[in-house]
Design a protein around this nucleic acid. Structure first.
Length: 494
RNA sequence: GUCCCCGUCGUCUAGCCUGGCCAAGGACACAGGCCUUUCACGCCUGCGACACGGGUUCAAAUCCCGUCGGGGACGCCA
């Protein structure tokens, strides 16, 4: 039994674009499954489609996988005992097995042209018949073949689907039966000689000793074909587990690059300030649950608790709100130095922070990050959440102005506060705080009525970190400058 | 059109296998409140689902049948 062997699983993307959310989730399930069983996680590159495969895409996939922490034990870039792990380098291997299939009468040459096939398909569709290759070239005579060759036709190789019902056992979906009439003689080698997915994948899974094929449900219909190819080649069939798909909206359509754009690119999430641990936690809960009440899982917990048995059968919808919630949660779990490190690239990219930080600047930055606290949903939020710490170039938000400057005597309050602040020598938290409160008390105005106008003057916003923190972090000179600017602004625009 | 799969709050899901503990639990979102100098966090409350119809049974979200709905596949793509 294949299940007696040590667990070996693979993620086999085709490098035709960035790693997308669905692919990352498939990789993740494979990875945790391997880790849970102390098995091996293999990265294979299924690039038999030479038209669409690119080197750049390959690199981006490696990069995204590594960012997520899904390191592979064996495979592309790292090698291993069953390489090469890039299918375009395995041509000779496939040729050998094609020959075997031909000789054992499990495959045959087909000379139908693409045009002829298209016509056949269209006719079948028009007659409301199943779209299925008729097996026309199954019984070609040598004379037929010579005639086609003379015409200059290049044949494809088709796998001869045997008759009978095939039973597919799936660890997630259970058992299902497929009639051979639902299958057709699949093309396994193109007319230009290059082998196709169902063949290469089957051969490689065997050669690489894959025990469990965990992949998206969109591959489900390939499964009977691959089982049959396995049989024809005398291979043992791996265990299959088809993951429910990730849909793009409640309307329900498979998440795809074409329909959902950047929303599906893992790289974009990294760029937008999502944490890999949040992505992992989010992705794993799309289809999998532990006990119905736990939501937060560390990678270690996942490895311990994961089981294919608890993967559901129905497709799920990608809900970015939940990802955002998780991301905020994981940002706050970062300790201050780590959170500061995480946020730095985003500030630098926005040109709010210099590239060479002095030690004093770093200390100050940590305090800013501490003050900003849990207000970050994504790391990149730091730039609009805290820009006023780094630049004088900010606008007064219209709503803030309307609410806190247009009502009451904002100018008077700011002038009074300016005087109080200007009179402070030791510009620290306690002094600033008690001075402002003393002023508020003396004037007999509510705290909010004094502090919010000041907040708007210093930050342009009506919300944010504690006002005393902001004041101290900004420093006396800047605070006075900004209060003056606000007073001028108010008087000019009364 | 053909084949296959799926169907619990708006969303992710627990419960289904092994019927009663389910007048269906948790989380996100949303609404309201508390906390508070503001925003956010946190806490509390609320809103909100067994697709529908039959059957089996003392008893059905759970088992059976049908209907409807959704998805996937149907390539010399993977």
């Amino acid at each position: 039994m294949i299940t007696d062997r040590p667990v070996r699983v693979r993620f086999a993307p085709s490098p035709t674009g960035f790693l997308h959310i669905g692919g990352a989730r498939t990789a993740l399930f494979n990875w945790i499954f391997a880790k849970h069983h102390g098995g091996t996680f293999i990265l294979r590159i299924d690039d038999t489609d030479e038209e669409r495969s690119t080197e750049a895409s390959m690199r981006e996939i490696y990069d995204s996988l590594q960012w997520l922490g899904l390191n592979w034990d064996e495979g592309a870039t790292v090698g291993g005992p069953h390489g090469p792990y890039v299918q375009s380098e395995r041509g000779n291997i496939y040729r050998k097995y094609v020959q075997q299939l031909l000789e054992s009468d499990n495959a045959y040459y087909c000379y139908c042209t693409p045009q002829e096939l298209t016509e056949m398909r269209e006719q079948a569709l028009a007659e409301k018949r199943p779209i299925r290759y008729t097996g026309k070239c199954r019984h070609l005579t040598d004379a037929d073949r010579r005639r086609f060759e003379a015409e200059g036709r290049k044949p494809v190789v088709r796998f001869k689907m045997p008759e009978g019902t095939i039973v597919v056992q799936d660890s997630i979906l259970g058992e299902s039966k497929v009639a051979h009439t639902a299958l057709q003689d699949e093309v396994i080698v193109k007319s230009n000689g290059s082998p196709l997915y169902n063949l290469t994948s089957t051969i490689d899974d065997h050669l690489m000793k894959i025990t469990h094929v965990i992949r998206g449900k969109d591959h489900f219909s390939n499964t009977p074909k691959q089982i049959l190819i396995n049989r024809a080649l005398g291979f043992e069939t791996p265990v299959f587990a088809h993951l429910p798909l990730v849909l793009g909206s409640s309307k329900g359509e498979k998440l795809s690059k074409r329909r959902h754009g950047d929303l599906v690119a893992v790289g974009k999430y990294r760029e937008n300030g999502y944490l890999p641990e949040a992505m992992i936690n989010f992705l794993v809960r799309l289809g999998w649950s532990y006990d119905g009440s736990e939501e937060i899982f560390s990678v270690d917990e996942l490895i311990e608790k994961f089981s294919l048995k608890r993967v559901g059968k129905s497709d799920s919808v990608f809900d970015i709100k939940k990802l955002q919630w998780l991301n905020g949660h994981y940002i706050m779990k970062l300790d201050l130095p780590a959170r500061t490190d995480a946020v730095i690239p985003f500030l630098q990219r926005a040109r709010l922070l210099e590239t060479d930080l002095s030690p004093e600047r770093r200390v100050w930055l940590e305090k800013v990050v501490e003050a900003v606290g849990d207000r970050l949903t994504t790391l990149s939020d730091i730039t609009d959440q805290a820009s006023y710490f780094f630049t004088d170039d900010f606008d007064y938000e219209p709503q803030a102005v309307k609410r806190w400057w247009r009502k009451g005597d904002a100018v008077g309050i700011l002038q009074g506060l300016r005087e109080v602040l200007a009179g402070i020598d030791a510009f620290d938290l306690e002094t600033v705080e008690s001075a402002i409160w003393a002023y508020v008390e003396e004037k007999g105005i509510g705290r909010v009525k004094a502090m919010q106008p000041l907040r708007v003057a210093l930050t342009g916003k009506s919300g944010g970190p504690g006002l005393f923190d902001i004041t101290v972090l900004l420093g006396k000179a800047k605070v006075i400058e900004r209060v003056d600017r606000a007073i001028d602004h108010l008087q000019a625009n009364h």
